[in-house]
Amino acid sequence: MTYRVGYFVGSLSSQSINRKLANALVAVAPTELELVEIGYANLPLYNRDLDAAYPLEAAAFKASIANVDAVLFVTPEYNRSIPGALKNAIDWGSRPAGENIFKGKPAATIGASRGFGTAMAQQHLKNVLAFLDAPSMGQPEGYIKFTDGLIADDGAVADPDTAEFFRHWMAAFAQHIAKNLAAR
């Protein structure tokens, strides 16, 4: 069976090390996973006053999430949490009340940082996903200490052990998806 996975890159920067990580994960994904990026840069700030007249950008965003089986978050840490733009996107996907598009979708978090900042961001993100009833993969965890040259822009990984970890991590995510979707 093939599962369609929507992935979010937490940083909007074109030079994001998390974009490089996402490219590496796409490159080593098992054949049963079809990964598609879900963009969110054009979303307005969430405001519940807009729930009655949902903006077209937000409706299209929610539709893109509805068209995937699972979600993957590849995120850095900003000020000991997740980037504001990513949180805004999650808010749009979970609103209005009672129309949470993330509910029941298997999820996973991974991220790169030059230190270990992604760990704090991922912990906050897992709390949000728990509230949204999106079952998150617990193990293996993915806190990637990024160094220059580790991952090329196209996703090529210089270190064979890191490349193997990415393959193992994506295989575990595929199992997490299959287990959670079978339980529905």
Rank of each mutant, 00 (worst) to 15 (best):
E32Q: 15
F165V: 11
Q15H: 12
G111M: 05
F173G: 08
G115N: 09
K126A: 00
S81E: 06
I17H: 03
N127E: 01
H168Q: 14
Q139T: 05
G104R: 03
L35D: 12
G138A: 13
N88Q: 03
A58E: 05
D69V: 12
E164T: 15
L21Y: 07
G6E: 01
H168L: 10
Q123D: 06
G149L: 07
S13Y: 11
P140Y: 00
H124T: 06
L33I: 14
A174Q: 15
M120E: 03
K62A: 09
L150Y: 10
K126H: 04
K105T: 06
V5M: 09
D148A: 08
Q122F: 00
A163L: 15
G39W: 05
G138T: 08
A163T: 11
G104T: 06
Y78L: 04
K20W: 07
G138S: 13
T118N: 07
R4Q: 10
Q122T: 00
V71P: 09
A174S: 15
E164H: 15
L50R: 04
N47S: 14
L50Y: 05
A172C: 14
R48S: 05
L129Q: 01
H124D: 04
A59H: 09
A112R: 00
K145L: 05
L72I: 10
A183F: 12
P96W: 02
A58G: 11
Y3E: 07
F8P: 08
R95Y: 05
F61T: 04
I151F: 07
A130T: 06
T118V: 04
E141A: 08
M137F: 02
E32M: 14
D69I: 13
I82L: 11
E77P: 05
A130S: 03
R114H: 01
I101M: 01
H124I: 02
R114N: 03
A52D: 15
A112G: 07
P106W: 11
K126Q: 06
S113T: 05
V9P: 03
W169A: 12
A172L: 10
D153G: 09
S14K: 08
Y143C: 05
G115F: 03
V74E: 08
L72T: 06
L132Y: 00
S94Q: 00
A130Y: 07
D153H: 05
S94D: 00
F173C: 09
I38W: 10
T118M: 05
L45T: 13
P83E: 02
A66K: 13
G6S: 04
N47I: 08
I177P: 12
S113N: 03
N79M: 08
F8S: 09
Y143M: 07
T147L: 02
V157E: 14
V68K: 06
D159H: 11
N67G: 14
A53L: 09
A70R: 11
Y3H: 09
R95L: 09
E32R: 15
S94R: 00
V9K: 04
E141K: 04
R80M: 09
L43P: 05
H176I: 10
Y54M: 13
G98V: 01
N100K: 01
D51L: 12
F146L: 06
Q139E: 07
T31C: 09
H168C: 03
F173T: 11
A178R: 15
I144N: 02
K103G: 02
P96M: 07
